[in-house]
Simulated assay, not measured.
Amino acid sequence: MQQIQDKAKKSCMVSFRQLHSHLKLLSNNDLKGTRTESGFNRSFATLFGQDLETFTGTMFLNVDQLEKKLDNKEFQEIGSMASFKVLETQFQMFIKSRIYLDDEYVVMTRNYFLQYTQLAIPEFRDTLIQHMESVKKSIDERAQHTREYDSWVNERQMQTTEEKDDLSTTLDASLVDTESSETESKEQDTRSRSGNDAHADDADLRPIYNEEPMAEVQLSVDNNVFATGQQHTEQPEFNNE
């Protein structure tokens, strides 16, 4: 898309330079102070309705303004077309004029115009119109490419934003699953430790007498009783003598 943009700009500037070169024919410095220039000045006033110096001075200002708009990296359709319209309007009187009469004055006008610009009036006008249309067309094409480029950039940005949102959602879901697993694991560990502690408490609370069998206690008592009876039986007999 960027290459298309660059190509459109290049084409636009080519059209502009062709127009600029054609307009320079109205300012021939090589004929300054000559009779041809003087005759051309009179012919020019007839064709353009203004003196040569004033008209060309304004013309080149308009041309420079148009060039700045077209050569700008950030193309602006409205500004470029506005500058073009200003320049186009300046030539409307000449474009619409018709110098086809055969009287002597018209013939002199044609001759001086041809000598000064090296082009006949109809040829100069037709070529001017051609270059004007070419510049206008290139502006329209560049504007169309610019809109397509902007639309493409916006679409790519939206796709990038959606991809980031999807990735963020996936990461959030993964984080929730991880936290849930960790929580469940902690709960299981807690329940396990609680169960072990309960068993330990039961062992601590077991009665002490359960640790010594009753049979052993009874046997000990019987032995003591038996020993006592035996002691009474084995007492020595006294001699009455």
Score class of each variant (00 low, 15 high):
77 E>H: 14
57 G>D: 02
77 E>N: 14
50 Q>Y: 04
75 F>K: 01
74 E>M: 08
22 H>R: 08
51 D>S: 00
54 T>Y: 01
25 L>F: 03
44 F>A: 01
49 G>A: 03
83 S>R: 06
55 F>I: 07
46 T>N: 09
37 E>D: 06
47 L>F: 07
59 M>Y: 04
43 S>F: 04
76 Q>Y: 10
69 K>D: 06
30 D>A: 14
52 L>S: 10
35 R>F: 06
60 F>R: 05
32 K>S: 15
75 F>M: 05
41 N>S: 12
88 E>N: 08
43 S>Y: 04
62 N>E: 12
60 F>E: 14
56 T>K: 00
38 S>V: 14
71 D>I: 02
82 A>L: 14
23 L>Q: 04
91 F>A: 12
68 K>Q: 15
75 F>W: 04
21 S>Q: 11
83 S>D: 13
64 D>I: 04
64 D>S: 13
26 L>E: 07
90 Q>F: 09
44 F>G: 04
22 H>S: 11
56 T>W: 00
21 S>C: 03
30 D>P: 00
82 A>G: 07
51 D>E: 07
63 V>G: 02
86 V>S: 11
47 L>H: 01
59 M>T: 00
47 L>Y: 06
71 D>Q: 14
44 F>T: 02
59 M>F: 00
38 S>K: 15
62 N>W: 05
49 G>W: 10
89 T>W: 07
71 D>S: 15
59 M>N: 04
24 K>V: 02
46 T>E: 09
22 H>Y: 09
30 D>Q: 15
91 F>Q: 06
26 L>A: 11
42 R>N: 14
39 G>C: 09
81 M>C: 02
79 G>V: 02
24 K>M: 13
76 Q>K: 13
87 L>E: 06
26 L>N: 07
68 K>P: 00
62 N>A: 12
78 I>A: 15
21 S>K: 05
41 N>T: 06
28 N>K: 03
76 Q>M: 07
69 K>H: 02
55 F>N: 07
31 L>S: 02
58 T>E: 12
85 K>E: 13
62 N>Q: 15
83 S>N: 09
